[in-house]
Simulated assay, not measured.
Amino acid sequence: MDILPDLFDQHPSQLQLVSSHWEHYGALCYFSGPAVTVNCFEDNSRIKELLASPGEGRILVVNGQGSTQRALIGDMIAQSGIDNNWGGVIIYGAIRDVHTLSQMPIGIKALCACPIRSQREGKGEIEQEIVVDRTLIKPGNYIYADLNGVAMSEHKLELA
C-alpha cells in the first residue's frame, strides 16, 4: 500500500520527510500512529520496557543515534510489541533477527541489521523531543511509514 506519495500530494505543507536510508522489516508494509519517543545509544532497556506496555496503536520512534554496531530490537522484543498492540517501530539504528521479523505482523523500519545484541544498562530517555536524521520528532507527532519511507506530521492527516 503506497500511502506516503498520496499524503505528500494532498498535504505537502503539513508533512515532513524523515529522510534516511530506511530498510523495511516486519510483515506490515504500512503503519501509522502517534509517536512515542526514545533516545538511546546501543542500549535497548527503554525500548524493551515500552514495548512490554500497552501500545494502543502508537509508533515507537527510537533515536539510536545511527549506530549500526548493536541491534536495538530483535524477534523477542518485537513479539512483545505485537502482544501489546504497538502499531510499529522506527529505529534510527540497527535491528536483528531479520528473517523472523519479516514474518511478524508489525511494521519495522531501521537503518540496517546487525547480529550483535544491545547492552542493557538501563540507559535512555523516553517521551522527549528527539532528532532523527535532522528531523525533530516530538511525542505525539503523527508518524506514517510505508515502503516509500517515513514521514511525520504534527497531527493526523486524512486522505481525500
Rank of each mutant, 00 (worst) to 15 (best):
H11N: 05
V61K: 02
D146F: 10
M152H: 09
G26F: 01
S13A: 11
A35L: 13
E158W: 07
N85F: 06
L147F: 05
L157M: 10
H24M: 13
G124M: 13
E121Y: 06
Q103E: 13
V98G: 05
Y30G: 00
D146K: 05
I77P: 00
S45L: 03
G26R: 03
H21W: 09
D133H: 13
R120A: 15
Y92N: 14
G107R: 04
G55C: 04
V18M: 11
C112V: 12
D133Y: 11
W22C: 08
N84E: 10
A151H: 01
S20V: 01
S102N: 15
R117I: 08
C112A: 14
L101D: 00
S102A: 13
I73Q: 02
N141I: 11
S13C: 01
V38H: 11
P139D: 12
V132H: 08
L136Y: 11
R134S: 13
I47V: 15
A94Y: 05
E121D: 15
V132R: 05
G93C: 08
I59G: 00
E56T: 07
A94M: 04
Q10A: 11
G149E: 11
S13K: 10
K109T: 03
L111V: 11
R70I: 03
L101W: 07
L60F: 02
C114I: 06
N141H: 15
S32I: 04
K138M: 14
A151I: 01
S32D: 10
L15W: 02
G107Y: 02
D2N: 13
K138G: 00
H99N: 11
H21E: 14
L7I: 04
W86K: 05
T100C: 04
R70D: 01
E129D: 13
H155P: 00
E49K: 14
I143Q: 02
L4Q: 04
Q103C: 06
Q128H: 09
D97E: 01
E129G: 00
V132P: 07
V38K: 11
G26P: 01
R58Q: 14
G140C: 09
